[in-house]
């Protein structure tokens, strides 16, 4: 029969072993995730850097074997992402202001908050189908404008979320001070709260840009992609993600190469914006 101390020693050993195993597994899980990220980045750079040249950046897409570049997808992406941000940000900002400054805990505000958070994670392909039925099917043609609207719909919930969060960080005392000086409510919000939170708000907008810049599914049914140079919002418009989708599965080697280069460009852009936004956010928290 084991003595009390030996039972305790066995128990302590088992507990220490369980702790060690859990620690090792947790570190291993973290390592797996980091290896996945590293593998993605190495693959992108390895395959994509070969096609990265001035020629690629300043030449339009061309038929396979035609020494094409990525100019029209790049320009198309910039136009669509830019206009979508301009369209979606004001709505998101105002809705975020409503949630933080006016709505409080009212049933309407709680519903808006709930729905906005749901839209934040909703499948983006649904947004594409929605805009297709709304803006493409009735007019019988795809258009850059429809792509802009689809992306703008994705911008709104992201901006709503960061706007509300950032406005809630602004001390109530600042609002009270402004109100005591006789400022009307809208001035308090626009000139005091928004100004105090501007760094955080900018971060939210940047994150929204980064999110929609890589979106493919909503554009497939709206702006469709265009292999010719076109700046018209009333016609099909090229974009980097859709071009990647069209080129990656093609049997032509130069198209696959361009797909990798486009993938490298878009990922570098998206990660760069994310890092900038995160640095901005850190500054906001410190101040």
């Amino acid at each position: 029969m084991p003595t009390a101390t030996s039972v305790n020693a066995g128990l302590a050993r088992r507990r220490a072993a369980a702790n060690l195993a859990a620690t090792a597994l947790a570190y291993a899980a973290t390592a797996v995730v980091l290896v996945a990220l590293a593998s993605i980045l190495v693959t992108l750079i390895g395959y994509g850097i070969g096609g990265l040249s001035l020629h690629t950046l300043i030449t339009d897409t061309a038929p396979a074997g035609g020494h094409g570049g990525l100019l029209n997808p790049i320009v198309g992406s910039v136009i669509q992402v830019g206009l979508a941000t301009l369209l979606g940000t004001p709505i998101g900002l105002l809705a975020g202001i409503y949630l933080a400054e006016f709505g409080g805990r009212s049933p309407l505000a709680s519903t808006v908050r709930f729905v906005s958070d749901m839209l934040l994670s909703a499948p983006s392909i649904l947004v594409g189908l929605f805009v297709y039925l709304l803006l493409v099917a009735p007019f019988h043609h795809f258009s850059g404008f429809a792509g802009v609207v689809a992306l703008a719909i994705l911008v709104v919930p992201i901006v709503v979320r960061t706007t509300e969060d950032m406005l809630r960080l602004v001390p109530v005392a600042m609002r009270e001070a402004a109100a005591a000086l006789g400022a009307p409510r809208w001035r308090v919000v626009v000139q005091i709260c928004l100004r105090a939170a501007q760094k955080g708000l900018l971060t939210g907008i940047l994150l929204a840009v980064a999110r929609i810049a890589g979106e493919t599914a909503p554009l497939l049914f709206t702006s469709l992609g265009n292999l010719n140079w076109s700046l018209s919002l009333n016609r099909e418009m090229a974009s980097l993600p859709v071009t990647i989708y069209q080129y990656a599965g093609s049997p032509a080697d130069d198209w696959v190469q361009l797909a990798w280069t486009a993938a490298l460009l878009i990922t570098a852009g998206v990660l760069f914006i994310n890092i900038v936004a995160r640095i901005g956010l850190r500054g906001q928290n410190r101040s």
Binding site: L37, S39, I40, P241, A248, T267
Partner: peptide
Amino acid sequence: VGTAVELLAAVPSIIFGMWGFF
């Protein structure tokens, strides 16, 4: 490490597709 994991969340889904395929 936290930042790296957050960046993984930011990688566009089509990139995961290409990485997965190749």
